[in-house]
Simulated scan of single mutants.
Amino acid sequence: MHFNFLGLRRILVLVGTTCLLFLSTPAFAAEQIVLKYGVFRESLSVEELSTFAQTGQLSRSLRVNLALARQDPKATRQYLTEPVKINPVFLDRVLNSQIGNIFLDKISQVIYTPSRRADRQALRAALVLSASQDGQVSLIEIIKNYPTNEVEVDGNRLESAYRQLRRLQTSLQDLLNF
């Protein structure tokens, strides 16, 4: 009697992720962000960063932080909001593979838990939840859907994280067209 454990594992992961997505409530989403730019470190609400991403209007603390770090607010906003189209089911499958772990490790150098524990799992959940909402992902969505109260972001590497998302999108499209 041959039992396909790999197929069963995929089904269980998909069912588990689906349950997580449908049972998730805003209480499990990030509320605070620690935005780091070199030696500068600013704690602000995710809502404050989200407002900036949506409207372009900077709060006083965010304006000061970006100015001290010599960051262009327009570029920062673009990296936060530019959507990347991704099929949520295929994304979930890829993120639960060795290649997906490599991708998650790269992005978790930019967006991570304060304890630096379970970064892969937290990022995987945020990515899949973000993609399941509208078939696309943006960095601000990942931050908003991060499953811890606080999330840390290396602001100097936002562009790198955005480029990694673009690479993932291209790789997934290539696999789908294969």
Rank of each mutant, 00 (worst) to 15 (best):
T18N: 04
R166L: 13
L14N: 10
D174A: 09
E47C: 00
Q173N: 12
S160A: 10
P88H: 11
G135N: 13
F3G: 04
L165R: 10
L20C: 06
L158S: 02
F5T: 14
I99D: 11
Y79G: 00
K36F: 06
D174I: 05
Q121L: 10
R157D: 01
A75Q: 13
N101P: 01
R117L: 05
L158C: 05
S115A: 10
E42G: 02
D119G: 06
F103G: 00
Q78D: 15
Q98A: 09
D105M: 09
I33L: 15
G7T: 13
T55Y: 10
L172G: 04
E42V: 05
L123M: 14
V84S: 09
T170Y: 10
E82D: 11
E82L: 05
Y146R: 02
G16Q: 03
D154Q: 15
I86Q: 02
I11S: 11
E150M: 11
E159I: 04
L20T: 05
T81V: 12
A131M: 06
P73W: 08
M1L: 08
T113S: 14
V128R: 09
L23P: 01
N149I: 03
I102R: 12
L91R: 14
L12D: 06
R9Q: 12
N177Q: 15
N96L: 03
F5W: 14
N145R: 15
N149T: 12
Q164I: 08
V13Q: 12
A67Q: 13
